[in-house]
Nucleic acid binder design. Structure first.
Ligand code: FES
Ligand code: FES
Lengths: 153, 153
DNA sequence: TTTAATTCGGACAATTTTATCCTATTTAAT
DNA sequence: ATTAAATAGGATAAAATTGTCCGAATTAAA
């Protein structure tokens, strides 16, 4: 008997992979290295082909550069790394409804027609928004570099 | 062409329905009325059969009482309403990973082996947890009763 | 006792999310 | 030029979530 029940998340799996991938790419880019899909998937412990799709999305959103062909891979221009906010990555993959939308699924969140949890929820959601908008890739990458944090279990 | 993309949520659809249903049942219970699945689904604008499953879950978790047969329906004992926290409902339907689990999907969130966003994320998540644990069904129901908030768009 | 209004719960269907496979294309190196 | 190492992207599959259907069980009321 498999007890599957219960695994709601703040971010989708795709988004989790996307964030971790971006961090790893940023880290390597600082070292002047370009990384392959294979390396990324191994490092962040994600399914390769699925990760490829996510990277395509990040590339289309100009968050990472992809380079085709032998010796190709993914990279981020060093000077851009510190200016990429977590919010941009989440936005590219999950959209902004997590920190914009109504907590109880009303068409839109509004003061004029609030859902029952609006006032309490909006505060938390705003915290999340601020957090995502004030956290950049550089600091996240530095945490990995210094050994203060980890990309996989 | 349907543009479906992007609809991540804080709570699952099931959980959204569950919260709204519980609020409506609480409201009616204060008025000494028991409500049918049909009424609930109509009031919160949810698919009936799906809502039935969710109500079964709430019943099994002793959050609502279900009464079978003609003139049956759902109710919550008045004296319990103020003591039911939002967290209990979320927990019964979505589990606790939303306010306990790692934001980047590591097996477990821990200070000893933190993911890159741990410190920033844990603060927001804790806010969410506090909010869910300090909000009870009574206040939510009162918002609806007073016309200050709405259950559907 | 019959009937009608209910919830219960199993089976199933549709949709979305997650994951895989395979071919085409690009590019560096030989 | 040829080859090998990459990403791109379409097609498909698997799994999870969301949604539907229907018969069984329960209960109040006629
Ligand atoms: S209306 Fe629901 S969170 Fe604002
Ligand atoms: S380890 Fe990821 S949020 Fe704590």
């Amino acid at each position: 008997m498999q007890c599957n029940q219960f695994l709601n998340r703040m971010f989708s799996k795709a988004c989790e992979y996307g964030i971790k991938a971006a961090i790893f790419i940023a880290l390597k880019s600082y070292q002047g290295e370009r990384v392959s899909l294979k390396d990324i998937a191994a490092k962040i412990n994600s399914p390769e082909a699925f990760t490829a799709k996510i990277l395509q999305k990040l590339a289309k959103n100009n968050i990472v550069n992809s380079v085709k062909g032998a010796a190709g891979g993914f990279e981020i221009e060093k000077h851009k790394i510190a200016s990429i906010q977590l919010a941009e990555i989440v936005d590219a993959i999950d959209g902004d409804s997590i920190y914009i939308g109504c907590g109880l699924g009303l068409n839109k969140c509004s003061e004029d027609h609030p859902c029952p949890v609006h006032h309490k929820f909006a505060a938390v959601r705003e915290e999340l928004k601020k957090m995502l908008e004030s956290t950049n890739l550089e600091e996240l990458a530095l945490g990995i570099k210094s050994g203060a944090s980890y990309l996989r279990t």
